[in-house]
Simulated scan of single mutants.
Amino acid sequence: MSREQQIYSFVLLLAPTEHVVVGATAGHQAHAAFLHTIEEVDPTLSALLHAPGVSTRPFTVSPLRGLGRPRAGQVQLAPGRECWLRFTALDPAIYQRFMARFLSGAAPVLRLGPAAFLVKEIRTTPGSHPWAGYSSWWELADRARPEPEVALRFCSPTAFGFGQHAWGKKIAVLPDPVPVFSSLLRAWNNLAPPALQMDRGPLLAYLEEHVVIKRLERLRTEMLHYARSPQVGFVGEATYGLMADDEGARLQLNTLAAFAFYAGVGMKTTMGMGQVRRLSDAR
């Protein structure tokens, strides 16, 4: 794998083509639209991305943003009302196939359920939009510094699943450091080049013994209403203290904090949940 292999975060500026009513929770529809866009160019890749039993999917999908305040779980949009979606691709082939669809001369329209949106612009260049950018696996690792504090902003509802029980699925909705960084570590080790793999055992031991929550700000829960069932998650800001002076562990956790911008955190990151960024990167 090339040291220059890129990972991408790209933002679609959208406008409805007519008066539409959309659900305030549109992550599942955006997920379907993303896969359909890939399918139009590369059906095999789309099928692979949708295959069951995959522990880490190499893309994420944001909620539909810029909607305004919903009423009864729905939002009315007039033609020309700009909103936006953000996708990430942790494999360059995904980004290339997605962009090929809109470079092919076909109508630049994205459908979210019954609603059609004109794709006015796609922004990927860093600085062109707060959620646009690109990097490489090696750059994320090379730019990390052993900072003793890491602050993350959880921008869409975030939650962690801990298995099915007789009474239902156990869900955690707190920014505890172990599930937050374990989620990022799992995604990193499943998708990053072999040379950059992190030793899971020692890093988890450091997490459990030496990483604490130092500050929580604007923390609250929010409910998403998917087609099949509601899903609760937390949003807000958390600052983590990396207390033991272990440069290697601090470097790895700072790398994972930067990676959160592309990978997301927790469950259902391909349906709008777990959109996270390092707080220093958001300022």
Rank of each mutant, 00 (worst) to 15 (best):
M1I: 08
S2P: 15
E4G: 09
Y8A: 05
S9P: 06
F10Q: 07
V11A: 01
L12D: 05
V20A: 12
A26W: 07
H28Q: 11
Q29S: 13
A30N: 12
H31K: 04
A32N: 01
A32K: 08
A33I: 09
F34N: 00
L35G: 09
H36Q: 14
T37L: 11
D42C: 06
D42Y: 11
L45W: 03
A47E: 14
A47Q: 15
L48R: 15
V61P: 02
R65F: 06
L67P: 03
L67E: 02
G68T: 08
A72Q: 12
V75D: 02
Q76N: 05
G80V: 06
G80P: 11
G80C: 06
E82Q: 15
L85E: 03
F87S: 10
T88A: 05
T88L: 09
A89Q: 01
P92Y: 11
I94T: 00
R97F: 02
R101I: 04
R101C: 11
F102Y: 15
L103T: 06
G105F: 08
A106N: 05
V109Y: 03
V109L: 15
L110R: 00
L110W: 00
L110C: 00
R111C: 13
R111F: 04
R111L: 03
P114T: 11
A116W: 01
L118Y: 14
L118W: 15
I122N: 02
R123F: 03
H129S: 13
P130Y: 08
W131T: 08
G133K: 05
Y134P: 10
E139L: 03
A141F: 11
R143S: 14
P146V: 01
P146M: 00
L152W: 06
R153L: 10
C155I: 04
P157F: 00
T158L: 02
A159I: 00
F162S: 06
G163W: 03
G163A: 00
Q164S: 08
W167A: 11
G168K: 10
K169D: 12
V173W: 01
D176V: 01
V178T: 05
L184G: 09
L185M: 04
R186Y: 02
W188D: 02
N190R: 14
P193I: 07
G201K: 14
G201W: 08
L203I: 12
L203K: 05
L203A: 05
L204T: 04
A205M: 00
E208I: 00
E209P: 08
E209G: 14
H210E: 14
V211M: 08
V211L: 09
K214Q: 14
L216G: 07
L216A: 09
R218L: 13
L219R: 10
L219S: 05
L219I: 12
L219T: 00
T221G: 15
M223E: 14
Y226G: 14
Y226E: 11
A227I: 13
R228P: 01
S229A: 13
P230Q: 01
Q231N: 06
V235G: 07
E237D: 11
A238F: 09
Y240K: 10
D246L: 07
Q252H: 13
T255C: 15
L256D: 09
F259M: 05
F259N: 10
Y262P: 06
A263D: 12
A263Q: 04
A263T: 01
V265A: 13
G266C: 05
G266Q: 05
M267L: 09
M271Y: 02
G272P: 11
G272H: 11
G272R: 07
M273R: 04
S280G: 08
D281M: 06
A282H: 03
R283S: 04
